[in-house]
Design a protein around this nucleic acid. Structure first.
Length: 145
DNA sequence: GTTGAGCGTT
C-alpha cells in the first residue's frame, strides 16, 4: 500500500523534491518557511510605515534612539502639500540595533497609530523596483525573491 | 480639520 506521499513523489518533477518542499504533511510549517524566506533580509535601516501625519523626524528619532545609535532619520513628505506621506526610514549604526528596535516597536502604537516596521529595501541603482505587499499582519510578502 | 497602503526630494 503506497502512501499518498510516495505517489506524489513519483509524479513530481525533481525540482520540487528538495528539502524546502514539505517532506511531511506539515503545510503550515512549509508556508511559514516560505514566508520568512521572503522577508527582507536584516539591515541596519528600517522602513517605518503607519506613521501618524503629525510625527516628525525629531519625535521619530527620540522614539528609536533608545535601541541604539540612530545615524539617520528621514520622513517622506509630499512635495507640494508638505504633509507627511506616513512613512519614513530610521538608520542605525549596527544591524542588531535595528533588529532590536524592529522587534520592540513593530505593531506598537505611536501617536495613536500602530507602526509597521520592516527592514528597508536596498536601493540598488539599475535594478527594477520590487514592490512588496504589506498585509494586515505587518509582514512583507515579496515577489521575485 | 479630508485619506491610510506603502520603500526614499539630496
Amino acid at each position: 500500500m503506497k502512501t499518498l506521499l510516495q505517489v506524489v513523489r513519483r509524479i513530481l518533477p525533481l525540482q520540487l523534491q528538495n528539502p524546502s518542499f514539505p517532506a511531511s504533511n506539515n503545510w503550515r510549517r512549509f508556508c511559514s518557511y516560505q514566508l520568512s524566506n521572503s522577508l527582507p533580509p536584516p539591515n541596519s535601516k528600517l522602513f517605518v510605515g503607519g506613521l501618524s501625519w503629525s510625527v516628525d523626524e525629531k519625535s521619530l528619532r527620540d522614539a528609536f534612539s533608545s535601541f541604539g545609535e540612530v545615524t539617520e532619520v528621514r520622513i517622506m513628505y509630499d512635495k507640494e502639500s508638505g504633509r507627511s506621506r506616513g512613512f519614513g526610514f530610521v538608520n542605525f549604526l549596527k544591524e542588531d540595533e535595528a533588529t532590536c528596535a524592529k522587534d520592540a516597536m513593530d505593531g506598537k502604537a505611536f501617536l495613536g497609530r500602530p507602526l509597521r516596521i520592516t527592514f528597508a529595501l536596498d536601493k540598488v541603482r539599475g535594478a527594477p523596483v520590487v514592490v512588496p505587499r504589506l498585509p494586515k499582519n505587518g509582514n512583507a510578502i515579496w515577489r521575485n525573491r
